[in-house]
Structure formats: structure tokens, C-alpha cells
Write a protein that binds this DNA or RNA. Structure first.
Length: 285
DNA sequence: CAGGTAGCCTGTTAGC
DNA sequence: TGCTAACAGGCTACCT
């Protein structure tokens, strides 16, 4: 469930503990979490390397290495990456332990084992496939009303190459990381609520004005969530083991049956784009 | 090509 | 009360 604000919080909290630290030893308790290259090569190539300042792209954590290359991690549903004193007992589902040269441990824990690591070399070999085709970052200028309008299909007046209006639900489009990078189930629901757009509306039926509202709402929601260190709904915590504080600011997600903050209508939970989806049936059309 | 969905996985919750 | 089935969801692979 970590989305952009959670991954960004992990990046920021890991940075002071990782930057400049050398990997003394890698302990693979569950080698299958290593997606590339094979586990033995992974360990051999990483031991002795030094971390530079960590970065992020979409929901991918980019642990850059001095001298080029990087360790890429995606937490997927239940992955946790954090630095602790080695005396702290290892929790269940701890799959990888990176021993650092200051004695601390960078631990990877993942109950559902969906997440994992790619070791990318200095020439860019080994990049996870999903990292290549990402759309603009949700907080970057590339995520604009014009850009989203173009993605909705239908074209605009004077468009040289108008495309057929897309029939997929607007929610499915916003979850597509090749359209915009960083949004997930929670923040898409929050975004569409603030924009007053029903999640199941065909993307092609979203007006340019609504598209502008969606982009603005996504910016607001995500930047507020970043400021609050993300949302801890059930599983997430940051690089120092702390929970996120955005939970209390959620307006629809997890509020099934509770009154809409705008009109009092009970919040509905339904299945849209294959996901549990929360919305106000009165405010969102 | 666009769009829908199964599968990955295990802890939690809903329902009988 | 105790068991089982459904659910949670980011992403890929596969099917239509």
C-alpha cells in the first residue's frame, strides 16, 4: 500500500542513515526477493559498495551507489525498509539484511513477499521493467491539465491526431503508472472525491475543466500526505519505524458507511477497476 | 491495441 | 465459539 508519499517518506528517513555507508555484508534469508540478478551475483556485486544519497521515481526507491549503479526497491503491498540497531530482534518476514559499516542494519521485511530488489549496474542493466515506462511524477510540471486531457482521448480542437475517447474508468487511468507515477488506491480515491468526479466515469467523458480539477486535487492530496509523512492504514511505516500521520485527513478511503464531510451522505465502497473504491454517491458524478 | 482479469502471498475479517 | 472463505492490493502476464 505504500504510494508516492510513503515511499518518499521512506527515502527521506533512510537518507541520513544510508548516505556514505558501506555495505559490509548482505544476508539473504529469502533469496527469491532478489529479482535481478541471481542472488549470488547480487550479493557479490553489492558487498563493499557505498551508498550515495537515495532517490525515488514513482513508487520505486532508488538507493544510488557511489561509482554508479543503484539498488532499486519496490515495496509493493507490505514491504518495509528500515535501519535499526542490530540488537533489535528481527521481526517475522525479515527477508534481507544489509549489514552497514557503522554497525547498523538495513532490513527488508515483507509479509506478502510481493516486493523486492533489482541491482542496476552503471550502464543501466537490470532496471525493473515498470521503472522504464513511468509517466510524469505526480508533483512535477509534466502532470498538467493539458497532459491529462490528452490522455483521456477524444482530442481537442485543432488536434492533428485526435484519439478515440478512452472508455476505461477514470480511476483505472489514474492508477496506471505509465499515465502518472506515484498514485495508488488510497490517493486516487481521495483525489476523485476532491475533484467531484465519480471513479467509474469513463475517462473519455471527463471534461477539460474536470481534468484540471483532478490534477490540482491530486497535487493537493499528495503534497499534504508527504507533509504528514504518509498514511499508515495498516502495514506501512517509514525508514525509522514510524507511522504516517495522514490517516486522520482521509475523506473517503476507509470510511464506508460514514457520513460524507460535504453532504452527510454515507460513503459507499464498491469495486471499480478491480479495486475496493470509496466515494460519495452524491458529491461525485 | 485497449481493456479486463488471474495470480502472486499471508494476515485479517466477514460469514456461516 | 470456531471454522472456512473472502478480502486486501501493485504490478505483471495473459486472454479476449
Amino acid at each position: 500500500m505504500p504510494e508516492m508519499p510513503e515511499v518518499e517518506t521512506v527515502r527521506r528517513t533512510l537518507a541520513p542513515h544510508l548516505t556514505g555507508r558501506r555495505v559490509r555484508r548482505v544476508e539473504l534469508l529469502r533469496p527469491s526477493q532478489i529479482r535481478h540478478p541471481d542472488p549470488d551475483t547480487f550479493v557479490a556485486a553489492l558487498e563493499g559498495r557505498r551508498f550515495a544519497a537515495p532517490g525515488r521515481r514513482g513508487k520505486y526507491l532508488l538507493l544510488h551507489l557511489d561509482g554508479g549503479g543503484m539498488l532499486v526497491s519496490h515495496l509493493r503491498m507490505s514491504g518495509r525498509l528500515f535501519v535499526v540497531d542490530p540488537r533489535v530482534p528481527r521481526e517475522r518476514h525479515t527477508h534481507v539484511v544489509f549489514h552497514l559499516d557503522d554497525g547498523a542494519e538495513l532490513r527488508y521485511q515483507d509479509m506478502r513477499t510481493f516486493g523486492g530488489f533489482h541491482l542496476v549496474d552503471a550502464d543501466g542493466r537490470g532496471l525493473p521493467p515498470g521503472l522504464k515506462g513511468l509517466g510524469p511524477e505526480v508533483l512535477d510540471a509534466g502532470w498538467s491539465a493539458d497532459y491529462l486531457s490528452a490522455c483521456l482521448g477524444g482530442g481537442v480542437d485543432g488536434d492533428a491526431h485526435p484519439r478515440r475517447p478512452r472508455r476505461t474508468a477514470i480511476k483505472a487511468l489514474l492508477l496506471d503508472q505509465t499515465i502518472v507515477a506515484g498514485l495508488g488506491n488510497i490517493y486516487v480515491d481521495e483525489t476523485l472525491f476532491r475533484a467531484g468526479v465519480h471513479p467509474a466515469r469513463p475517462a473519455g467523458a471527463v471534461t477539460p475543466a474536470e481534468a484540471a480539477g483532478i490534477v490540482a486535487a491530486s497535487r493537493d492530496v499528495v503534497s499534504e500526505a508527504v507533509a504528514a509523512n504518509g498514511t499508515t492504514f495498516s502495514l506501512y511505516f517509514d525508514g525509522e519505524g514510524r507511522r504516517g500521520d495522514y490517516y486522520s485527513q482521509l475523506r473517503v478511503f476507509g470510511r464506508r458507511g460514514e457520513p460524507c464531510f460535504c453532504c452527510g451522505t454515507p460513503i459507499v465502497k464498491a469495486r471499480v477497476a478491480g479495486r475496493g473504491t470509496h466515494f460519495c454517491p452524491a458529491c461525485q458524478t
